[in-house]
């Protein structure tokens, strides 16, 4: 599973990561490479620096320190020696690689007329390992599918709590019709996170009836989907801007169901955000799910109905 990631790591770092104990390798969430600073890995409940022998260490000095050559090689491997082909990705600050894994990039940003043009001298990489957890959303199903209808769903969660994992699995379940009649699913994947497309091909299993618009701005993408692909369910990640909520209104009034997510730690926080207050007041969403990391990523803290009354939470199972 790690092999697409190992392929983009320069030999020196690849060796270090391969030396990691098996258990840690299985749980890896992030590998962080910063030029001249210790190599770090992030695991579900902790993080640590990695020594050249692949041991987790607390002290900085013991860790392997990637140098500028490592960073240069890594960029070459990620871009396949073709930075010109990654212009859009560099502007957005991350690259999706085979397997749906994402690599965030930092470095010297080149700005042209106030807009980020690309990143030069990349010195920081964050390899986020994507894990598809099939069945992560199964226990949520009775809450969002009742008497033959799907509810419009908003998943609220702080970063790294498994909201995309949950959303991806929901899309897969609806598309393949597990425990319900199958429906056509349209995924608008602005940041290539849900389906993890490489060259337009989803790297995660998305179900047989799923169409993916990869790298498309959400608001526009939702309209394109409705016009051209007649989906029963739209799946969109991380809405929040004004035009997004307008598109959501349009979609819901066009009779399309909608699953989406938002960053936030609590419902109060979401209600205060201008992009959402209107949506919530109008009762666009019929179910809200709040996630946390309390018992590992994907812990379901609460489920609310249309009027923000809490419903009994399903037996939560961690997705991590």
């Amino acid at each position: 599973m790690l092999s697409p990631i190992l392929d983009v790591l320069p030999l020196s770092i690849r060796g270090v990561v391969e030396f990691l104990p098996k258990r840690e390798k299985k749980q890896l969430e992030e590998i962080r490479i910063r030029q001249g600073r210790p190599l770090e890995v992030v695991l579900p409940f902790r993080s640590g620096f990695v020594t050249p022998e692949g041991r987790l260490a607390v002290r900085e000095e013991e860790a392997y320190h990637p140098d500028s050559e490592d960073c240069e090689k890594m960029l070459n491997l990620i871009s396949n020696h073709s930075l010109y082909a990654l212009e859009e990705e560099l502007r957005r600050g991350y690259v999706t690689i085979e397997g749906g894994h994402r690599i965030g990039l930092t470095g010297r940003v080149v700005v042209e007329s106030g807009k980020v043009k690309h990143i030069r001298e990349v010195t920081g990489f964050n390899v986020r390992i994507a894990r598809q957890v099939k069945g992560a959303a199964r226990h949520l199903l009775p809450r969002i599918f009742q008497r033959g209808t799907l509810f419009n769903l908003l998943i609220v969660s702080p970063p790294q709590c498994g909201k995309t994992t949950l959303l991806r699995d929901l899309a897969r379940i609806v598309s393949s019709g597990e425990g319900m009649p199958a429906r056509k699913v349209g995924v608008v994947d602005e940041r290539s996170e849900i389906a993890g497309c490489v060259d337009g091909v989803p790297q995660h299993e998305m179900g047989p009836r799923t169409d993916v618009l990869d790298g498309c701005p959400k608001a526009e993408g939702m309209m394109m989907m409705i016009r051209s692909m007649s989906p029963d369910l739209l799946v969109v990640d991380e809405i929040g801007r004004k035009e997004d909520s307008e598109a959501v209104f349009e979609a819901v009034h066009a009779g399309v169901h909608l699953f989406t997510t938002a960053h936030g730690h609590s419902m109060e926080e979401i209600c205060r955000r201008p992009g959402f207050s209107g949506l919530i007041r109008e009762g666009v969403f019929s179910r809200y799910v709040l996630l946390s990391r309390r018992k590992g990523p994907g812990t379901i803290e609460a489920v609310y109905d249309r009027h923000l009354h809490p419903l009994p939470t399903p037996g939560a199972v961690g997705t991590g």
């Binding site: 320069p10 030999l11 240069e72 090689k73 890594m74 070459n76 491997l77 396949n80």
Partner: peptide, 13 residues
């Protein structure tokens, strides 16, 4: 060389 030299700079290849 681009494919096999493991991230060596493009110029080197």
């Amino acid at each position: 060389y681009l494919k096999t030299l493991d991230g060596v700079s493009t110029f080197e290849c």
